[in-house]
Amino acid sequence: MRIAIEHRTQYRFSQAQDRIVQMLRLTPTDTQDQTVVSWRIGVDCDARLREAIDGFGNAVTMLYAEGPIAALELSVIGEVLTSENAGVICGAAEPLPPLFYLRSTPRTQASVTLAEFAADVAAGEALDGLHRLNAALHGRFPDAPDLPDRGCAAAQAFAAKTVTSRDVAQIFIAGARHLGAPARYVSGYRTDGEAHSAPHAWAEAYVEALGWIGFDPATGLSPDESYVRVAVGLDATGAAPIAGTRVGHGREQLDVDLHVDRLGGEE
């Protein structure tokens, strides 16, 4: 599938900022089933951009801008070619061994009820168990929209009535790790014909003999060719598309305009 992405993020500040430094995890990398055809990150003010690969294998862009900055718009425009592989990730850079992803973080610690829920629904063979956990979470939270990260932890979200795709991905990760499966958070894009105010988020878990497999508890299914993987991390904070610091007073207002479209041809 040929997917076009246009992702604009606009910051407006109530007072001009002196300096802005951001770490952007907004660039996908190639895997066996994902080829980046074109990709460009633009900024509408005088800024320096520097690219690197981080310790997780993510493509990271550092953004340095000097003030006074009253507003800042980041535009990400690109095209990616994907193919279907039953959710199995092949050919990704894997600088960290799977075992590392058993590590818990404050945002992915399972509460007793979350752990019991995971153990209940996922009893039995590992791969089936993870699929059942994925489906059960979708059943429990049928509506998990793509909204900006609120900083919620998995245990807290699990006890809540409404969740986002970010929350339910973290809940899946907490549950999977509790079951002994290395699991990680994925931030990326998905074409579903709907408008979004934030990128999509899902999870990957490691199954011996198969490798890393994607699970999207927001749909209850595994990611298919309509997904573009961008960044992985231990949790939503670790894979945040934009992490930023600013020097300056005042409030910031954030607007996101995101279009993920399927292009014709290349079926």
């Binding site: 981080d54 310790g55 997780f56 600088p95 960290l96 061994p97 075992l99 590392f100 058993l102 590590r103």
Partner: peptide, 18 residues
């Protein structure tokens, strides 16, 4: 034991491969 390193908070993925 691999877990002693990989699951140790003191192993910092942020500087992995640097």
């Amino acid at each position: 034991p691999n877990e002693l390193v990989l699951l140790n908070e003191q192993f910092r993925p942020e500087v992995n491969r640097v």
